[in-house]
């Protein structure tokens, strides 16, 4: 699958209720090593209730400056959540359908400490 077929797609719950749009796809470098790095495992999709666009990830990181932009983008993407990949039931031309018991997680992640 090409990732642009998934990004910006509408997301629906199992009963057809629209819940938002895919704004990003999260990978975790914990797969088997295939070179200098581990294979990125698809961890989940980030869903914004309002728009498919996302700028600098303000809604999922703790960056708070410049304050005006940070507050605007955090507000614009309020309600953004993460759905684990195993909770994605189907992807077709109509968008993404979540599993019936799909659980929503906070979109943030722990950033590595600066070296």
């Amino acid at each position: 699958m090409i990732l642009s077929d998934l990004l910006d797609q509408p997301v629906r719950e199992a009963d057809g209720t629209p819940v938002g749009y895919v704004i990003d796809v999260r990978f975790v470098l914990d797969g088997p090593p295939v070179g200098p790095l581990a294979t990125p495992r698809v961890h989940g999709v980030l869903v914004s209730p309002r728009t498919g666009s996302s700028f600098m990830g303000y809604e999922r990181v703790d960056v708070r400056s410049p304050a005006l932009l940070a507050r605007w983008f955090a507000w614009r993407h309020r309600g953004t959540f993460l759905v684990h990949w195993q909770d994605v039931a189907a992807i077709d031309e109509d968008g993404v359908t979540l599993a019936r018991d799909a659980r929503r997680w906070a979109p943030g992640y722990e950033r590595p400490a600066p070296a």
Partner: peptide, 14 residues
């Protein structure tokens, strides 16, 4: 909050 991951997290667009 999601559980801490065993490897580095990369968001495709970010």
């Amino acid at each position: 909050k999601d559980a801490p991951q065993p490897g580095r997290v990369l968001d495709a667009r970010l």
